[in-house]
């Protein structure tokens, strides 16, 4: 496949690569960022990367399978719930510790 062909004919693999990149980005965010809020956002990014995959698979499925698109709604709901719980927890620990740096929370270990 010539290079410009790959660039111009956007297909399933492009979406998959995009979602993989986004997922990795989110993953790295969780691994590397120190701020708890950013970590929460990174998780959201990972979930949304998955959404792209679902939609892409659904769109390019030979049988026009719509399940994937429905699943995105499930995922979005869960993501919202998670965000709510996550932010609540973040607030709580901020109240308790006055700290948003994740490296601060290393009391439990060993």
């Amino acid at each position: 496949m010539p290079i410009n062909d790959a660039l111009l004919n956007v297909g399933l693999s492009h979406y998959l690569i995009l979602s993989a990149l986004l997922f990795t980005l989110g993953l790295l965010g969780v691994l590397l960022r120190r701020n708890v809020i950013v970590i929460l956002m990174s998780i959201e990014l990972m979930l949304n990367a998955v959404n792209i995959t679902f939609v892409a698979f659904s769109r390019y499925s030979p049988t026009a399978n719509m399940d994937g698109q429905a699943m995105v709604f499930f995922v979005m709901t869960i993501a919202a719930a998670e965000a709510a719980v996550g932010l609540a927890l973040a607030t709580t620990i901020f109240k308790k510790f006055r700290e948003v740096n994740i490296r601060y929370f290393e009391h439990l270990k060993g």
Binding site: L31, I102, E106, H107, L108, K109, G110
Partner: peptide, 17 residues
């Protein structure tokens, strides 16, 4: 094995990764 358990959550995530 205990030293693996640093308490650093990001490290735990790193194990998974």
């Amino acid at each position: 094995a205990r030293t693996l358990q640093t308490g650093n959550m990001q490290q735990y995530a790193l194990y998974i990764s």
